[in-house]
Computed example of a mutant assay.
Amino acid sequence: MAQTSSITTLFIDIGGVLLTNGWDRAARKLAASTFSLDPIEFEERHHLTFDTYEEGKLTMDEYLNRIVFYEDRSFTRDTFKEFMFSRTEPYDEMIEMVCRLKEKYGLKIAIVNNEGRELNQYRITTFGINKFVDFFISSCFVHFRKPDADIFRIALDIAFVQPKEVLYIEDRAMFVSVAEGLGINGLLHVDYASTKEKLASHGLIL
Rank of each mutant, 00 (worst) to 15 (best):
F83A: 02
S74Y: 00
S36Q: 02
I154F: 11
T76I: 02
L18T: 02
M97H: 14
I109K: 05
M94V: 13
D157E: 15
A200S: 10
D157L: 10
G183S: 09
I184N: 07
N120C: 14
T79R: 10
E165P: 05
Y70T: 04
D171E: 02
K146E: 07
F85C: 08
K57L: 15
F144N: 12
V142R: 03
I109Y: 06
F83D: 04
V68E: 02
D148L: 13
I7C: 01
L19Q: 06
H189W: 01
R77D: 03
F75I: 00
T34Y: 02
S86A: 03
D150L: 13
F132M: 01
I12Y: 01
T59L: 01
N21C: 12
V161A: 11
E82K: 12
V112N: 04
I169D: 03
H47D: 13
E82W: 10
I151K: 07
F80A: 04
F136I: 05
G56I: 02
E89T: 09
G106S: 00
I109H: 01
V98C: 05
G186W: 01
Y122D: 11
Q162V: 10
K29R: 15
A155E: 14
R45S: 09
L10M: 00
L206H: 12
E197L: 07
A173T: 14
D150G: 09
R172K: 11
L107Y: 09
P163Q: 03
H202N: 13
H47G: 09
N114Y: 10
R100G: 06
G186Q: 07
F83Q: 00
K146R: 06
E54Q: 08
D134Q: 02
L58M: 09
F160Y: 11
F132S: 02
A179T: 10
S74V: 02
K131S: 14
I40P: 14
T76M: 03
L204G: 01
M84A: 10
D13H: 08
L18I: 04
H143R: 12
E82R: 13
T20G: 02
E93I: 02
T195H: 06
D134T: 04
D72Y: 05
Y70E: 06
I67W: 01
T4I: 14
T4Y: 15
F160R: 15
D72Q: 06
K164L: 12
K198F: 09
I7Y: 06
N120E: 13
E118C: 06
W23Q: 15
Y168C: 05
G186F: 04
